[in-house]
Design a binder for these strands. Structure first.
Length: 564
DNA sequence: CTGGGGATGGGGCCC
DNA sequence: TGGGCCCCATCCCCA
C-alpha cells in the first residue's frame, strides 16, 4: 500500500487558528477556567492535548478553578494564548518577573513546553528561576481545590474567601488588563459558573464558598451575619477580555460575548461553557445545605436556574437587550419562560436585522455592546470616555474606578433610571392609558373625595387609600406601565418589576444563616428557614398533615378536594 | 410510572 | 417602596 504523501502545508496552523478564533467567540467552548475572578473559556480537547493536568481536570469538570497561588488571570491569559497559538507574544509585560510567573503557572499546569520556554528565557537573562512549588503548600485555600477535581492538594476551601484578596486581585487586574479588557460583574455569572461544574456539589463541602468565592455579592442587604455575607463584590469578576489577547491571534476566550453578558444580565446561567456545563448543576447555595434535606436539595437544581440554563442554550448568542429597549412582549406566558421568549424574540429580530446567529454571531453581538445592567465591560464599539475608569456600566457607559462604585451605580439603574420614564407615566393618566381604560381618574373622582373607601369601577373592589386603588386600577389596564428594560416584560406595579429586575441582576440580598442559600425576597428566606427549624405551621384540617409552607398545604388540600 | 410531599422561583396584588 | 402573602408552575425525591 502506497503511502499518501499529500499534505496541506498549513493545515495544523490553520486549524489552530480556527480554534483560537472560536475560543475568542466562545464557540464550542466547553470548559471554563476560573482564575481568581477572571473567567476563561476554552476547548477541552485543546487543553487536554496541551497538559496532562488539564486533561485530568476536565475529564469530569466543565469548570476549572486554578490555584491563584500558581497563576493569576493575566498570566493565564498568556498561557491560554500560548496553548492556542504556540507563541509567547512579546510585550512589555514580559519582564523577568512575568516569565517567572509564567514559569510558575506553566509548571503548575504542567505545560512543559511553556515552562521550558520560560526557563530558557530566564536563563538567558541570567535570572534565577522561580522557586514556587507546583503544588501549593500553604494553608491558603484555592477554589480549584474545592470546585474541581484538581490533582493539587485537596485543601479545603476557606469559605470566607476574603474580600481583600478579591479586591486585591481586582486591582491587580485593573492594572494588568488592557483598556479593552472586559469586566463582568454579575452575580449570576458566578452562580452559573458554579452550576457549571458537576463536581461542585460533590466536592464542595464547605458551604460558604460558592458564589462568594467567585465574586458574588448578593448579600448586600442580607440580614444575616453569616459567612455568606463575606463575599466579594459582584463587581469583582473581571471578565477576561476578548481584547486582552488582541495582541495575539485571537481574543482571550472569556465571557466576552453577549450571550454571556445576556445571561449574566438576565440572571441566567451563562452559556459560557456550552450546554453540558449547565446541566444539573446545583447552585452553590444548595450544596451548602446541612439539614437532612440537604442531600436532596443538593441534587436539585432550582427550577429557574435549570430553565435558565436551557434558555441559555436555546439562545446561545442571544442579543442582549439594552436598557430602553423597545418592549416587544409576546402574548401570554409568565415567569421566566416568558422572559426568555422575549429574549428569543429579540434574538430573532436581531437575526432579521442581519445579525446572523451563526457561530460568528457571537462575535457580532459582542461588538454591539451588551446590556445588562450588571455587566460591565469594555470593548470595541463601546467607547465611553473612561480614562482609568475601567469598570463600565453598559447601559449608560459611565466608567468607574472600582467595582464597588460601579456596583453602587448599577443599582441606581434598577431603581432610578429605569423608572424615570415610568414615573412620568405614573403621574397619569396619560393619553394612552386613558385610552386603555381611563379608570383611575374616573374612580378617583367618583369615590375619592366622598367615601372612605375607594372602589374600582371595574371590579368594585374597594380600598382604603386612593393610592392602593390606583395601584389596583393598573391591573385593569391593557397597558402595563412598568416594563423590564432587560427582557421587556411588563408589570403593573413598579415593585413587581424591581423585584423582577433583581432576578435579572442576580441580586439576592437575603441569605440563610444556616446554609448560605440566598433569596430575592425576605419572605422566601422566612419560608426557607423552616427547612432548618423543622417548623411546620400549616396543618391540614382534614388529615392533620403539617407543612412548612402554606402553599404546599394548599397544594395538599387540592389533593383532598380533587375528584380522584 | 405515578402520585404525594418538600422546596423553590416568579408574578399578582394588597397593605 | 418594600413587605407580605397568595397563586401558579416546576423540580426533585421517594414510596
Amino acid at each position: 500500500m502506497r503511502k499518501l504523501e499529500m499534505e496541506l502545508p498549513n493545515h495544523a496552523k490553520q486549524l489552530l487558528l480556527q480554534l483560537n478564533q472560536q475560543r475568542a467567540k466562545g464557540y464550542l467552548c466547553d470548559v471554563i477556567i476560573v482564575v481568581e475572578n477572571a473567567l476563561f473559556r476554552a476547548h477541552k480537547n485543546i487543553l487536554a492535548a496541551s497538559s496532562i493536568y488539564f486533561k485530568s481536570l476536565i475529564l469530569h469538570d466543565n469548570l476549572i478553578n486554578l490555584d491563584t497561588d500558581m497563576v493569576n488571570p493575566s498570566v493565564f491569559r498568556q498561557v491560554l494564548d500560548f496553548i492556542y497559538t504556540g507563541k509567547l507574544l512579546s510585550s512589555d509585560q514580559f519582564s523577568d518577573h512575568n516569565f517567572n510567573a509564567l514559569l510558575t503557572a506553566a509548571s503548575y499546569l504542567q505545560l512543559h513546553d511553556l515552562a521550558a520556554l520560560c526557563r530558557k528565557k530566564l536563563k538567558r537573562n541570567g535570572r534565577s528561576l522561580l522557586s514556587k512549588p507546583t503544588t501549593p503548600t500553604n494553608g491558603r485555600t484555592s477554589r480549584n481545590q474545592r470546585l474541581s477535581s484538581t490533582p493539587v492538594t485537596p485543601n479545603q476551601m476557606s469559605g470566607s474567601k476574603d474580600n481583600e484578596k478579591s479586591k486585591r486581585h481586582e486591582d491587580l487586574l485593573k492594572d494588568d488588563l488592557s483598556e479593552d479588557e472586559m469586566f463582568v460583574r454579575n452575580t449570576h455569572c458566578t452562580t452559573s459558573i458554579n452550576t457549571l461544574s458537576p463536581s461542585t456539589s460533590k466536592n464542595g463541602s464547605n458551604g460558604s464558598c460558592g458564589m462568594q468565592e467567585l465574586g458574588l455579592d448578593l448579600s448586600k442587604k442580607s440580614p444575616s451575619g453569616s459567612t455568606a455575607t463575606e463575599e466579594v463584590s459582584p463587581s469583582s469578576i473581571p471578565q477576561e477580555s476578548p481584547q486582552s489577547a488582541s495582541e495575539s491571534t485571537a481574543n482571550s476566550a472569556s465571557f466576552d460575548d453577549h450571550t454571556n453578558a445576556q445571561n449574566l444580565t438576565t440572571g441566567e446561567p451563562m452559556e459560557l461553557a456550552g450546554g453540558e456545563c449547565e446541566e444539573n448543576q446545583p447552585p452553590p447555595d444548595v450544596e451548602q445545605h446541612k439539614s437532612s434535606r440537604q442531600t436532596t436539595r443538593q441534587r436539585r437544581q432550582p427550577k429557574s436556574e435549570h430553565k435558565k440554563a436551557e434558555d441559555a442554550e436555546r439562545v446561545p448568542n442571544g442579543v442582549t437587550k439594552r436598557l430602553n429597549v423597545t418592549v416587544d412582549r409576546p402574548p401570554g406566558g409568565r415567569h421566566c419562560n416568558s422572559d426568555v421568549s422575549y429574549q428569543c424574540r429579540e434574538d430573532e429580530e436581531a437575526l432579521e436585522n442581519g445579525q446572523e446567529q451563526s457561530e460568528d454571531s457571537g462575535q457580532s453581538e459582542s461588538e454591539g455592546g451588551r446590556n445588562s445592567t450588571n455587566y460591565v465591560y469594555r470593548q470595541e464599539g463601546f467607547e465611553p470616555a473612561l480614562g482609568d475608569n475601567l469598570y463600565v456600566c453598559i447601559p449608560c457607559g459611565k466608567g468607574f474606578p472600582s467595582s464597588e462604585e460601579l456596583n453602587a451605580h448599577v443599582e441606581t439603574h434598577t431603581e432610578e433610571e429605569l423608572y424615570i420614564k415610568e414615573e412620568e407615566e405614573d403621574s397619569y393618566p396619560k393619553e394612552d392609558e386613558v385610552e386603555a381604560e381611563d379608570l383611575s381618574s374616573q374612580i378617583t373622582q367618583v369615590h375619592g373625595t366622598e367615601s372612605r373607601r375607594f372602589s374600582c369601577s371595574v371590579c368594585n373592589k374597594s380600598y382604603k387609600d386612593p393610592a392602593t386603588l390606583r395601584q389596583h386600577e393598573k391591573t385593569h389596564w391593557l397597558t402595563r406601565p412598568f416594563p423590564c428594560n432587560i427582557c421587556g416584560k411588563m408589570f403593573t406595579q413598579r415593585g413587581t418589576m424591581t423585584r423582577h429586575m433583581r432576578s435579572h441582576l442576580g441580586l439576592k440580598p437575603f441569605a440563610c444563616e444556616e446554609c448560605g442559600m440566598r433569596f430575592t425576597r425576605q419572605y422566601r428566606l422566612t419560608e426557607h428557614m423552616r427547612v432548618h427549624s423543622g417548623e411546620k405551621p400549616y396543618e391540614c384540617q382534614l388529615c392533620g398533615g403539617k407543612f412548612t409552607q402554606q402553599r404546599n398545604l394548599i397544594s395538599h388540600l387540592r389533593m383532598h378536594t380533587s375528584p380522584s
